[in-house]
Design a protein around this nucleic acid. Structure first.
Length: 507
RNA sequence: GCAGCCGUAGCUCAGCUGGUUAGAGCGCUAGAUUGUGGAUCUAGAGGUCCCCCGUUCGAUCCGGGGCGGCUGUACCA
């Protein structure tokens, strides 16, 4: 056996957690972005685009370490050996931007930004290593009116995206309330920092695990279905009860208004100074929500919303979808929140050394899109396919070019067939593209100065009735012969019959 | 990160208690049906049976490791 040298063939595959978006998905995302942008603009935010790559130290806590330089964030070294990172959110770059341009910016500074962010972690349903976020932030606004605005704007965005009121909820809490709770049960002070983190993470899981599960996590720990054990916070029984009571205090019959929720929380954490401050802030937000007409069906106060431990310092909020989403196999899919935010008064301080109060909200566009797709609420066909001009005679390409140009000039999406196959294949191509009309000019037509227009949408319906192939072909259904000069008008007429405007937008 | 299940054509899968040319349906390409999307018929393309190492005369099948996918859990700025 002679060994022919093997040519290296790379496997054609997209890296894990990353994906290619087809036309329908790209357009769906663009439409979502346009709707969100409209809301953000209406609230007075201005666009800002920062770079996708930052110096690693500017992004904060995820400095590449020796063992795992890519943990969480994608990083690499520049020529000058400085570490660069792909941004993992849009907030950290904003903080860098604000710090860098602080003196020249109007304050408060309000900006929105959308783009891809990258996280090097395990992908899951609706969770990718590259995804799109759409952020709005207000920097140098100390009062909670800025936070309240974020919550209302988040609600407006979800509704603008077609999610009915009642199918989502903006859930609001305040880190100061949680701090007050921890203080109340004797977990204040530096010595208890790790325990506090564990307690907060446990509270965050109430939605998933219920009171029982949270109690286990607060105590000795919990073993999950796979047998994996999660170490608990090791609290005493009375501490556990206090925390669990707090988590459940906002629920149930009594909590018919946000004010009542605050009253029940006040009994538990009101004695703590920080807790009382948090409650006062929420009360102020409630007044603003009420003034703007945002009731409990849109925004609620929620005891188990914690959010990331890293940098939130005041009100925190997230938007959750309330309906059940099922995958192709019919199994319920647990999506995380589709948007979140909160107050981060310390982020710019990292650069400037002075506290700059800020708050922001970020919509997880990719995750929301994945949820809507599973729901079948994503319109993937919203753009009509182009009119296809068949190219039956290689010597007459100029004629075909002229036809597409005429159509394009009046705003109709059109293309001539650029492949190398015969008429049947060209028709199949037009069909597969979803083209509404095929324009045919072959020998026969040219002899009479006419062209044939085939209504492919009508033809597709008629083809359901076909019994005999020969008869169908000879009948030449759904097509008309018109003078070459009337190309544009006749194509327009067919498009109009199907409710297509200029062949571009459907419906 | 941890645990469980899984990995054969573009897709859905079959197959072999380890033995020569690995199959089906759908899809794809081309041809036939006088220049036409469906149907039918004919032909064709397409596979390192995820990768590497080991056991064996011989591995798609057995063992180990890796990679990838799914599910749960952890993390989530």
């Amino acid at each position: 056996m002679s060994k022919s040298p093997k040519t290296f063939r790379p496997r054609a595959r997209v890296p894990k957690g990353l994906r290619d978006l087809s036309a329908g998905m790209v357009r769906a995302e663009l439409r979502m972005l346009a709707r969100i942008r409209e809301v953000y603009e209406r609230y007075g935010f201005d666009p800002l685009e920062t770079s996708a790559i930052e110096y690693a130290d500017a992004l904060g806590k995820f400095l590449p370490d020796e063992d795992r330089p890519n943990e969480g964030v994608f990083s690499f070294q520049d020529d000058d050996e400085q570490w660069l990172s792909l941004r993992y959110d849009l907030t950290a770059p904003l903080a860098r931007y604000v710090a860098e341009n602080y003196d020249g910016l109007p304050k408060p500074f309000r900006r929105y930004q959308t783009g891809s962010v990258w996280r090097n972690e395990k992908p899951g349903p609706g969770r990718f290593r590259q995804f799109t976020q759409f952020d709005a932030d207000t920097v140098a606004a100390p009062g909670v009116a800025a936070d309240a605005e974020m919550c209302m704007m988040g609600a407006d965005c979800l509704e603008a995206l077609g999610i009915p009121r009642g199918d989502y909820r903006i859930r609001v809490n305040n880190r100061k309330v949680l701090d007050g709770l921890l203080e109340t049960i004797g977990l204040g002070g530096d010595a208890n920092e790790l325990t506090r983190a564990t307690v907060l993470r446990s509270i965050d899981k109430f939605d998933k695990l219920g009171r029982k599960g949270v109690e286990l996590l607060l105590g000795a720990g919990r073993k999950d279905e796979s047998g994996d054990f999660t170490k608990g916070a090791g609290l005493s029984p009375s501490q556990i009860t206090a925390v669990a009571d707090y988590v459940e205090s906002g629920l149930g019959e009594g909590a018919t208004t946000r004010r009542l929720v605050l009253e029940s929380w006040r009994k538990i954490v009101g004695a703590s100074a920080i807790g009382a401050e948090g409650l006062d802030e929420l009360a102020e937000m409630d007044a603003l929500f009420e003034a703007a007409g945002y009731g409990l069906d849109r925004i609620e106060f929620n005891s188990w919303i914690v959010r990331g431990l890293g940098y939130y310092t005041g009100p925190v909020f997230e938007s959750d979808l309330l309906f059940e989403v099922k995958d192709d196999a019919g199994n319920p899919v647990r999506f995380g929140s589709v948007g979140s935010g909160g107050r981060y008064d310390g982020l710019v301080e990292r650069f400037k050394g002075v506290k700059v109060p800020a708050t922001g909200f970020s919509i997880g566009v990719s995750r929301l899109q994945a949820a809507l797709e599973l729901l079948g609420k994503l319109d993937l066909e919203a753009v009509a396919a182009p009119v296809v001009v068949l190219t039956l005679d290689a010597a007459r390409m100029a004629d075909y070019q002229q036809m597409v140009s005429e159509l394009r000039e009046v705003g109709i999406r059109a293309e001539m067939y650029l492949g190398g196959s015969g008429m049947k294949a060209q028709m199949k191509y037009a069909d597969k593209r979803g083209a509404p009309v095929a324009v045919i000019e072959g020998e026969d037509e040219r002899a009479t100065g006419e062209i044939t227009l085939k209504d492919l949408i009508l033809g597709s319906e008629m083809s359901k009735e076909i019994a005999d192939n020969t008869a169908w072909r000879e009948g030449q259904p759904a097509q008309v012969s018109v003078p070459r000069a009337r190309l544009v008008e006749e194509v327009k007429a067919i498009l109009a019959r199907h409710g297509l405007h200029s062949g571009f937008h459907r419906g």
